[in-house]
Computed example of a mutant assay.
Amino acid sequence: MTPLPPLNPLKMFEAAGRLLSISKAAEELFVTPAAVSRQIRVLEEFLNFQLFRREHGGLSLTPAGAKYLSEITPLFMALRETTNAAMGGGYRRRVLRIRSPATFAVRWLIPRLAGFHQLHPGIDVQLTASAAPLDFSREDIDAGIELGDGHWPRLIVQKLVPNELVPVMAPRAGATVPREPRELASETLLHSLARIDDWALWLRAAGAPGVNTYQGMKYETSLLSYQAAVEGHGVAMAQKALVEKDLAEGRLVMPFGLALDRGDHTYYFASPREREESVELAAFRRWLADAVAASSTTMPSAL
């Protein structure tokens, strides 16, 4: 039987990941920051991968850490609700259930969620990840994020980030960085199977018909293709808003200036039109609009 992860370290990771702060997690759990850090290291050793990046001025989740957090969050929420019910329901929390594609959740939403928790400490967000189309008739969720054209008459939709396609790669010595799109013919292209036509769309816009648009490495999600690019395995076609931190911190660079804006085909926050909007959902919608506005500041430019 596969062993359970060590539960005390798991609890501390969940708090630190949700709050993106060791000190705030320590306050919530009534332990010292050193104890939280120590327990997170125990969990990292058990999992054999790093959960956080300890950076100047803050803490951020690694892609693997963010994915793991998104998967354990519903389990912690279910455990809290089951315990509350067993105790007679005396401890009431307001729960907001949100579903998102994994790449958007890990790359954009989770790094910002601590801000929502700080503004609304009485609302628990239960975040799940899936690439399947939203189906509110079958899923126990309040709202979700979906990639598409936004023309869904039965849903209230809120446009999120621009969907600008840009090639990205790990930094290299100047002489080996492709300077013209046609030079991509000699590069390993990294594809997401969830967005398999993105390279063809960008290369057509760039006027590079001689590049095989489907050659290269293919990954189940964009999240994996972005990580492959960071590791130096090739050139990925990225949604610029989802790699902004990697670009700003130099883990990825854009070798070309062309950003192909897909217009209305982008990410939307959606909820059922026929349902009365809860106070919790309205608060999340307002916060999300502010987070989107804040993220539309100056982005890194091409090399």
Rank of each mutant, 00 (worst) to 15 (best):
L7V: 06
K11D: 03
M12V: 14
A16Y: 04
G17V: 00
G17N: 01
R18I: 06
L19A: 04
L20S: 09
S21V: 09
A25H: 02
L29K: 04
T32L: 07
T32N: 11
T32K: 09
V36Q: 00
V36E: 00
V36W: 00
S37F: 07
S60G: 03
S60I: 08
S60K: 03
T62F: 01
A66M: 08
A66Q: 04
L69I: 08
S70H: 04
T73A: 12
F76T: 02
A78T: 08
L79P: 01
L79C: 12
E81R: 14
E81Y: 07
T83I: 10
N84D: 15
A85R: 13
M87W: 09
R94V: 13
V95Q: 00
L96W: 01
R99Q: 05
A102W: 10
F104M: 08
A105C: 06
L109D: 01
L113W: 08
L113N: 05
L113Q: 01
L119C: 12
H120S: 10
V125Q: 11
L127H: 05
L127C: 11
A129Q: 06
A129S: 14
D135F: 11
E139W: 15
I141S: 06
D142R: 05
D142L: 09
G144P: 07
E146Q: 04
G148L: 12
H151F: 15
W152Y: 11
P153G: 12
L155A: 10
Q158H: 03
L160V: 08
E164I: 01
L165D: 01
V166Y: 01
A175C: 13
T176N: 09
R182D: 13
L184Q: 05
L189E: 02
H191I: 07
H191T: 05
S192M: 02
L193M: 03
A194N: 10
D197A: 10
L203N: 02
P209F: 05
N212E: 12
K218Q: 11
E220Q: 05
T221H: 14
Q227L: 03
A228H: 03
V235E: 06
A236H: 02
Q239G: 04
K240H: 12
E244Y: 09
E244K: 12
K245T: 15
E249R: 04
G250C: 08
F256Y: 09
L258I: 15
T266G: 06
R275I: 12
A283R: 06
D290H: 09
S295E: 14
T298C: 13
